[in-house]
Nucleic acid binder design. Structure first.
Lengths: 209, 209
DNA sequence: GTTAGCATGTAAGGAGTTACATGATTTT
DNA sequence: AAAATCATGTAACTCCTTACATGCTAAC
C-alpha cells in the first residue's frame, strides 16, 4: 500500500535506466539501441526485441522519451528505412539525472550494478564512491555467507560441491579486490574535480602475456 | 512441433534436477531441501518457497518423487511437526540416472552448469569430461565475443564501460583457467576408475597470505 | 532473383518472485 | 507470554523469452 505514496516514480527497471543512459549521448532507433545495449551489458544476457520494443513504448507513454520527427534529422540517422528514432524528453533527462544522482541500495545489486557502473562518467564522484562501497559491502556479505557455508559442512559435503564453492569464493575475492582498487583510486582523485577514468593503476592485473 | 517426439522427457528444468539430486542422498522435507539447495547453489540466487513447493507438487504428479509415510521413518526425520518428507521413486531414480548420464548442451550453460557440477560425484568420468569441455568452449566463445566488442570500439566508448568489460574479461579468463585445470586433472585420472575429487593440484591458487 | 541482414512489432507463455495466509514449536 | 524460527502453501504479478508475422533494402 505505501507504493502510491512514492509519487509514482521508480519502476525499479534496470532496462529503463539502460535505455535512458544510452539515449543521453545520441538519439537512436530500437534496432541499433539493442545492439549497443547487448554490446555493453551482454554478453551474458541478450536483450530481445520482445522486451525492448514494449519498453520503448512504455517509456514513450510515460513521457520520458519521444520519437524524433524523421524529417529534421542530420541525414546520418535518417536512413531510408522505416525507423523510429527516439530521444530523451526534458522529463526523461530530469529522471535520468535524478536516478544517476542517487546511490540507492538497488544500485549495488547484481542486476543494476553493471548498468550504473557503465554510466559512471556522468555521475558525481561522491555518488560513485557510495555505489562502489555499497557493492563492496554486498560482496563481503556474500563472501562471509559462503565461508560459513563451507565451514559448516566441510565434512559431509562431497568434494565437487566443495570445489565449486571454493572457486566461487575465489571469484568473489577477485571482485572485492577490484572494487577496493577502484575505491582507493576514487578517494585519491576525488579532490580535484576532473572525472578520472579508473582503468590505470593496474598493479593487480596478472599480465598474462 | 517436434517437441512431442522426445517421449515427454526433458522439461529443461534445472530446479527439477537440483531437487532430484538432493533427494538421492536422503529423503527430505521441503523446508530443509530449500536450505540445502540455497546452501550449495546460492548464495547468488535464493530459491523461494513460492517456487519450491509447486515444483515438489509437480514432481510428485509426474511420479518422480513421493511423500514418505511418516509412520515408518527412522525417528531422526520424523519430527512432530507437519512435515512432508519426500523421496525418489524408482522412476525418479531412473530419470536422474539418465539425466546425469548425458552431456547435453544445456549442461554447460550458466543455469545448469553449477547444478551438474555439484552432482559430478555420481557421474561417469567420460560425461564429466565432456561437460567440462563444453563449458570451456562456451567460455571461450564468450571471451572471444567480448574481445571483439572491446576492440571494435576502444575509442568511442568511455573509460568506465571499458574498465567494466576489462574486468569481465579477466573473470572469464579465470574461469577458463579453472576449467582447464579440471580438464587436465580429469584426463590424467580417468584411467583408473576411482572417482577423484578435483580440488588438489592447486598450483593456480594465488595463496593470498 | 534470392539470400542475408535491417527494422518493427505482437501473442503466448515460462520461470520464478513477492506478498499473503496459516499455524505449530522452540527459545528467550 | 512474546518472539523467533519451523513448516506449508496460494495468488497475483513481473520480467523476460520464444516464436510468429511482416516487409524493406543490400549484396551476391
Amino acid at each position: 500500500m505505501p507504493n502510491d505514496l512514492v509519487t509514482m516514480r521508480a519502476r525499479s527497471d534496470v532496462l529503463e535506466l539502460a535505455i535512458l543512459g544510452q539515449l543521453q549521448d545520441a538519439p537512436l532507433h530500437g534496432y541499433e539501441l539493442r545492439k549497443r545495449l547487448n554490446a555493453t551489458l551482454g554478453t551474458v544476457r541478450a536483450l530481445s526485441y520482445g522486451s525492448l520494443y514494449p519498453a520503448l513504448k512504455s517509456l514513450t507513454a510515460a513521457g520520458l522519451i519521444e520519437a524524433v520527427d524523421t524529417a529534421d534529422l542530420p541525414h546520418a540517422l535518417a536512413g531510408k528505412r522505416t525507423r523510429i528514432v527516439y530521444q530523451l524528453t526534458a522529463e526523461g533527462k530530469e529522471r535520468l539525472a535524478q536516478t544517476l544522482g542517487t546511490a540507492d541500495p538497488d544500485s549495488w545489486e547484481d542486476d543494476s550494478f553493471g548498468v550504473r557502473f557503465s554510466l559512471f562518467a556522468e555521475v558525481d564522484p561522491q555518488v560513485r564512491l557510495r555505489i562502489l562501497e555499497g557493492r563492496r559491502m554486498r560482496m563481503l556479505e556474500r563472501r562471509e555467507a559462503m565461508r560459513e557455508q563451507m565451514q559448516r559442512n566441510r565434512e559431509r559435503r562431497d568434494a565437487w560441491t566443495l570445489e565449486l564453492q571454493r572457486h566461487g569464493l575465489e571469484q568473489i575475492d577477485r571482485e572485492v579486490g577490484w572494487l577496493e582498487d577502484l575505491i582507493t583510486h576514487e578517494r585519491n582523485t576525488s579532490s580535484h574535480p576532473t572525472s578520472t577514468p579508473g582503468a590505470q593503476d593496474r598493479r593487480r592485473t596478472p599480465k598474462e602475456h
